[in-house]
């Protein structure tokens, strides 16, 4: 290697060391470890059944969709705490429109997407335009959206049981769009929710890796002032990142509503933290300017499978939580860039 070049990359001498220096291979290793764990603790062969994998992916998909949006924001150097509440807001809205008002999905879906993007865009404008710290701005949106979700739903779950004026309940059928989102394809081996997740991942990957906007997002996260002086429209780029995160939270909210067949104003509490954990376990650093969707995909699978393996082995939830905490620390320690 050229003598002029120095730094972490050239320090990785052996091919193995070079592989280890790549965050993708480290994230892959974490996933491989989790899968190996599954092969050992297979719960009487349950781990080898296709249904287990389908369900693992199904359960991970909503988190994965949130994590895609979170990746955009984190690459820009920010954080989005509002996604869990926006998910609930959209779940409630989507259920109200589809179940109670019997709107066509052609109208309801775009409206819900716009609602999510609006929430994200407002939080983004507060942080990028008014220079409120991302943590604070999205925290405010998190609280506000939760309140709005409760207002719209009257604090009740919006389900197929529609209350009449006289206090009795009518039961309406589950709308077609709910049944479609929650259905399985490919001979019952894949859920539509998982397909939606993969579509979201593909779209965000395309924007990050192939669009000018994605490149500018990395530049802002890496050095905002240098980006600004290079003519990057910093405010607009950042606002769009938060709006995209809100939009993806809306997608996740609709998926969640379809899976639960209701809109729960309490849904999604704490999901933002799971999404952040997924991004971090994948290897995208919270400092911004680095990382990508591929890593987040690996992080989603790692967390998703870990959950599944623990649950098929009937590990209590309390233990699962503690284990997840340990795994986050372990992942971040291995992902840490060593100083040159």
């Amino acid at each position: 290697m050229n003598a002029e070049v120095r730094g972490p990359k050239s320090e990785a001498r052996s091919p193995l060391g070079r592989l280890w220096a790549n965050p993708a291979s480290r994230a892959l290793l974490a996933l491989a470890l989790v899968l190996a764990l599954g092969c050992v603790f297979h719960a009487d062969g349950a781990f080898f059944k296709p249904g287990t994998h389908r369900d693992a992916l199904r359960q991970a998909s909503v988190f994965g969709i949130l994590a895609c949006g979170m990746t955009l924001v984190i690459i820009s150097g920010g954080i989005d705490l509002a996604v869990g509440s926006v998910l609930a807001l959209v779940a409630v809205t989507f259920s109200l429109l589809s179940i109670h008002r019997a709107w066509s999905p052609v109208l309801a879906v775009p409206l819900c997407l716009a609602l999510g993007a609006l929430c994200g865009g407002v939080a983004g404008s507060l942080t990028a335009g008014f220079r409120i710290q991302p943590f604070i701005a999205t925290l405010a949106m998190m609280v506000f959206a939760r309140g709005l979700a409760k207002t719209i739903s009257g604090g009740m779950k919006v389900s197929t049981a529609v209350k009449n004026p006289d206090g009795s309940y009518d039961y309406v059928p589950v709308p077609g769009v709910f049944r479609f989102i929650d259905s399985r394809i490919l001979g019952d081996n894949l859920t539509v929710v998982t397909v939606i997740f993969v579509g979201c991942a593909l779209l965000t990957w395309l924007l990050l890796a192939r669009h000018r906007w994605g490149r500018e997002l990395y530049a802002i996260g890496g050095n905002e002032e240098a980006a600004r002086l290079s003519g990057v429209p910093v405010v607009r780029t950042k606002v769009l990142a938060y709006a995209a995160s809100g939009l993806l939270a809306a997608v996740a909210g609709m998926c969640q509503a379809a899976q639960e067949q209701q809109g729960d104003p309490e849904a999604g509490a704490g999901y933002e933290l799971t999404a952040i954990a997924i991004v971090v376990i994948g290897g995208t650093p919270l400092t911004g300017g680095r990382g990508g969707i591929g890593l987040t995909l690996l992080g989603t699978l790692t967390i998703g499978y870990l959950e599944k393996i623990l649950s098929i082995n009937a590990v209590p939830e309390a233990t699962r939580l503690m284990l997840t905490g340990v795994i986050i620390v372990a992942a971040v320690l291995t992902q840490r860039r060593r100083r040159s």
């Binding site: 669009h211 490149r215 990395y218 890496g222 050095n223 003519g231 990057v232 300017g289």
Partner: peptide, 25 residues
């Protein structure tokens, strides 16, 4: 410079609008 980005990303950063007509790089 944007230190975590590549030589290519840094070199093209100020000229992205012209290099990416329609937004796609």
């Amino acid at each position: 410079l944007v230190l975590p980005l590549s030589v290519i990303a840094n070199t093209t950063l100020a000229d992205l609008p012209r290099l990416s007509p329609g937004g796609w790089r």
